[in-house]
Design a protein around this nucleic acid. Structure first.
Lengths: 196, 196, 196, 196
DNA sequence: GATGAATGAGTATTCATTCAT
DNA sequence: TATGAATGAATACTCATTCAT
């Protein structure tokens, strides 16, 4: 019984190692330029094993998307917000954790943006995440500002997508955090103007 | 002499047909999933001819980027702006033409965003276009609003990248223009608040 | 353990079959006119398998050269020479085994001579074999004849290269062994005159 | 009429330029690795023109073999031999001009040896040349030495093929002429022993 | 569960050859 | 005579996938 469980655990670990290896590889090279050999090597297993755990290379893609979710940590950040603090302070904290989150899941983000352009399944998934991200912040802001729902949604969507693109094109290649701090500070200030 | 020119013209036309076919194919399937056979078929020529005009498949990518430029039409729109009209009106006109421009060059945009994630050459190119787009609108707005340069640049960057992402993820799949009109109207209104 | 070894043995056998098939094909058609498809077919495997065992078609060429060596059997013949017998007899025996050796490794010889003309790596290899062949016979003859080293080396080189060329151009297409016997007998007689 | 002739002359010149370019290219890369594009470029004409003068790439090979012959100059050398001089001197002169001849027609020789291994037409041609070369020297030597015909033929064949191979493998890559001079001197001395 | 040998369809690229101009 | 655009079959090599062990 114990051995059985042990074995199952080891199997699960191998499966996870494969998913993570696939994510890293897809992120680096893009889905179709990543070979199953690449992934197996990255995971430290032999070629054929992928097909013991997954039906196909594409199946690995779905497994990645099922395993990871971008928004958990952000929800937690919002839950722990200090209601005594100013909105400006809290939004700054929130966007900083958004950037942290993006950094931690850089591979996933990069892969999703790359694939979304010509893979409608990935795109729908990405759309869902964006919508949920908007709803998350909306749920927090709605009771705290006097802005019409429709306007608020668009404002949130715009600031967040702009930030994601800033991350993708600039921030992730930058060494220093000064630029990011300035960027967030300015963006928050401007966002507050919109919320007035 | 005339015959010579005629033949050369026809050759140039074929070359252009190949570039356009490649753009459409890359946009639809992504660069690495597009086969040279696909491209040749799309252009209505045989496989080998690609290599009469281009050194490699990647060479076709550069030829596309060399041929097309996103920002010409936007510059013209800004040049023709009515200085008597309100800023709100002019910005609305400008962003509408941005969307029109994105639609016209949809294939190019989609391809660039898809490739930029794991092709640093394409990414640098895309960065350049984004920067130039920001400078374009900045040159127009700087003398008309009282906002510190750094702030203005970030505001412009944010609104424009948000719009491009809205185009990529939503607008280009939508049938009706109502959503877009509303989106632009709201975004412009919020952008004006930032500029105050 | 045994099963593992069995499988590995089978794999090694396949690899060797590929090397031999490549040798036969290169010899028949020349390196660059031999297709990987030809080789795979000759080996009785599918196209792709070549690249499981070898990095490239050229890699197969090196594998051939690594596997085969022309001179082993000749060394053995020299070792077993009867010191009681006359030099003429022993040389005749030696040259006969040279021809036998050339016949046995006909494919390799033909391929090497064909490729050496425009592949400097192969040429260097062939030069090495020729030099070693000269040294082999020199080591045997030096203590047995009174000829200056330099002269002896040239005499050996000349007789042996002449024989190889006779093999390549004439002998390998001939049916009867009479011509060869006469050729060897005459050549040995003339070689002995040189050694006096 | 004159213009016609002029044009014909120019055409002949172009054809010859193509043959020479093909010889150089075949010699450098081997027949099948030489492309018609290579040859056209080397000749300074456009791709298609080859097929105005020749039926195929192989046709160019035959044109080369038809145009060039190795033995003319050697015949002349033999004709001009000084009958007062010693045999050793005359043979030395002869073999020196053999090497000069080989050098002058290096491209042709290299190409023929490379192709002969897997192209029986070329091989037959090469055999013919070797046989004629043997007969040439035999005609000169027969009345001057007392050796049985069969023996003399083999002696001549051996020394000459050995020299050709020495040229192919060593001499043509050497800078200094000292080695060659020594080689010829020694070989002649040994050859004279055979002729005794 | 894990290995890696084997498959075979697919892919970028090459190249001899043709032909309209 | 000369050009070079166009063809299309061929080729080295890749890679997702299967499967016997």
């Amino acid at each position: 019984m114990k051995m059985r469980t042990n074995r199952q655990l080891k199997a699960l670990e191998t499966k996870n190692r494969l998913i993570d290896a696939a994510l890293r590889t897809f992120s680096r090279k893009g889905f179709s330029q990543s070979t199953t050999k690449d992934i197996a090597k990255e995971a430290g297993v032999t070629d054929g094993l992928i097909y013991h755990y997954f039906q196909s290379k594409e199946d690995l893609l779905w497994a990645i998307l099922d395993k990871y979710t971008l928004l958990h940590s952000l929800q937690e950040v919002l839950n722990k917000m200090d209601n005594q603090a100013s909105l400006e302070h809290n939004l700054t904290v929130y966007f900083h954790s958004l950037f942290r989150s993006l950094h931690e899941q850089q591979d996933l983000i990069v892969m999703c943006f790359g694939e979304a352009q010509h893979n409608s399944d990935v795109r729908k998934r990405l759309e869902g995440v964006i919508r949920q991200g908007v709803e998350l912040l909306h749920a927090y802001l709605a009771p705290r500002v006097r802005v019409a729902t429709h306007d608020l949604l668009i404002a949130i969507r715009n600031i967040q997508t702009a930030m994601v693109l800033y991350f993708l094109m600039t921030d992730r290649f930058a060494d220093n955090e000064t630029d990011r701090n300035k960027y967030i500070e300015t963006s928050v200030r401007q966002f507050l103007k919109v919320l007035q």
